[in-house]
């Protein structure tokens, strides 16, 4: 691993005492974690522990939220979603969020730039060749794997530096999971900062610098990659596997 230790790099994302609600239901109960620039961290936990909601709350996609979320030192609680994203965020939602009424290429070209240094369409087609073949197809006709690749490619084009990836391997064939693993590794080498919510622990374990464990809407533990093997028993208890 060539990445410097987390402490050396400047902090890109800092979440402090984050509470989030959907209507009357209180989902996040004071989430605290931080991510350094260039780091890849995972949010692990059982279903319903609040990992997806944490990503949504960072983007302002939940209902009311309190606490603090800073991106590159700028407070974003209270900002509208599109302003937060313009700070350089890219979001890959759990349901992939491919627009059915747009073609694959329209989907790819849709998001406006949120920063400099995005990958070109050619680079993206080189990374995900299937997308080039399918570029005229409506979003609704793409396979699950193609949709996931498109959802990834879409946020890489816009120059986002901080990627929030939610369950990108869910329900996909092993060969596609491997391709996504290679893509995520490439992104990390290119210096992207990534927060990965992942059910597939083996996928996450091979990529991450640190793992945050969530339970009942809180972060309950943090495990650096180096201590992962030693912490397996503890982790299995957390995840119930």
């Amino acid at each position: 691993m060539t990445t410097p230790p987390a402490s050396a790099a400047p902090e890109l994302l800092r979440v402090t005492d984050l509470h989030a609600f959907y209507g009357e239901s209180h989902i996040l109960h004071g989430v605290d974690f931080r991510v350094a620039a260039g780091e890849l961290v995972t949010l692990l936990g059982r279903n319903g522990s609040g990992r997806t909601t944490t990503l949504k709350a960072i983007l302002g996609l939940t209902g009311k939220r309190t606490g603090s979320v800073t991106v590159d030192g700028r407070e974003t609680v209270g900002m509208p979603t599109h302003k937060i994203v313009q700070l350089g965020l890219g979001y890959c939602p759990e349901e992939r969020g491919i627009f059915a009424s747009l073609t694959a290429e329209e989907n790819l070209l849709l998001p406006p730039p949120v920063g400099s240094g995005g990958l070109s369409v050619d680079e993206l087609y080189a990374m995900f060749p299937n997308l080039q073949e399918r570029r005229k197809s409506p979003g609704s006709r793409l396979s699950g794997g193609e949709q996931q690749m498109l959802a990834m490619a879409r946020i890489l084009r816009v120059g986002a530096r901080l990627l929030l990836l939610d369950e990108i391997t869910e329900g996909l064939a092993p060969v596609i999971v491997q391709a996504l693993g290679r893509a995520v590794r490439t992104l990390k080498e290119k210096g992207f900062t990534i927060v990965l919510v992942e059910q597939n622990f083996r996928f996450a374990a091979g990529l991450a610098d640190r793992h945050y464990v969530m339970e009942h809407g809180r972060i309950v533990d943090m495990i650096p990659q180096a201590e992962l093997t030693a912490s397996m028993q503890k982790l299995q208890a957390y995840l119930g596997v």
Binding site: L59, L61, H82, F99, S101, L102, L110, P111, P112
Partner: peptide, 25 residues
């Protein structure tokens, strides 16, 4: 057109379109 693609995407899922940095309001 591209402008129309925004409208179609917004019609389908305005929250998600906003999560790509588009000023949906």
């Amino acid at each position: 057109t591209r402008l129309g693609a925004y409208l179609r995407a917004g019609t389908e899922n305005p929250r998600l379109l906003q999560a790509f940095g588009v000023n949906v309001p």
